[in-house]
Design a protein around this nucleic acid. Sequence first.
DNA 1: GTTGCTGGTTGCACAGTACAACTGTGACAA
DNA 2: TTGTCACAGTTGTACTGTGCAACCAGCAAC
Lengths: 173, 173
Amino acid sequence: MTAAATPDETPVAPGGRPADTALETIQREMTTFARRARALAGRLHPELSLVSYTLLGHLEERDGRRATDLAAHYALDKSTVSRQLSALERAGLIERRVDPDDHRVQVLHLTESGRHALDRVTERRRTAFRERLADWPEEDLLRFAAYLERYNAWPVAGPDGDRDRAVPGGTYG
Amino acid sequence: MTAAATPDETPVAPGGRPADTALETIQREMTTFARRARALAGRLHPELSLVSYTLLGHLEERDGRRATDLAAHYALDKSTVSRQLSALERAGLIERRVDPDDHRVQVLHLTESGRHALDRVTERRRTAFRERLADWPEEDLLRFAAYLERYNAWPVAGPDGDRDRAVPGGTYG
DNA sequence: GTTGCTGGTTGCACAGTACAACTGTGACAA
DNA sequence: TTGTCACAGTTGTACTGTGCAACCAGCAAC
């Protein structure tokens, strides 16, 4: 899945209609991006995987969430979340406090260190994105953002519409 | 990283300017998409991982490539490619023939079975994308496609501009 | 209490990946 | 011819993210 800039892969218009070509392109480019996202995260902030970053970001916005909430939200297995959180706690980025009302649940909180790490990474990502999109006219940025939101708003699995189920066996791509 | 449709995550405009908000949104939504892509592939065609699909697709367009070409193109380690190709060959989807001119290299070819598998998966993906984008006006499709191409055309690593370096340790998100 | 539900952890298996060491082949020079 | 070096690909090892299943601990309802 090559960048569109290289003449290496010629998008084939299957139906001949422009909309079909666009569909192919969207599919192809989205796949390209997906393959690159992890790598981007790896280069940009090796200390914080994309999952960790995501979970951390979630906790920043919604402090006091439970592990189960995160698992449900991201449609990750609770064991996966548990392990991720363990790592984050081990790294001192979050705290797990037992809920006094229900000793089964853990209430999750960002530590100061976690907040700082998140801020650093966010800033680095923001800079990278800003640089990458520097020469885009504002109008295009707004439209692109709107398209992406609209695209992602599509319910991907289940009635919830907010789950992106991960798949056994790691990365798949 | 929640879908924009849910009121769960409020995009914060850091600078207050619309373009900044758009930047945040793009970053967030691209990340969302990246997390979902593998899952999409897993649901859509569990028999063909996104990597395999990508490699197979590459071979369809450029028959007779060498493993090293693929490794360079996708910036994967040759060992990774080697194992992926082994799996594909074991599944009967590709053939590895020794280059008569240089017995070190293997020339890669899709088998009939491989072509069919690829076609099936491509069709399934196309259908999914088509369904997902069914109610988009053609104009938006074209623009969205153009934006994505433009976005991905950005050189991600190295002077080549066509490498998306994978990262040790699997998925990263 | 006993039974059942729920939140979380742990054991296990598996896929994708990189790095390093290795094998086999080719190329080129002394 | 014989080294020597370079290159293509495989294999061994280690690591990460992931799910499933089994499990433990606390809560609730009977």
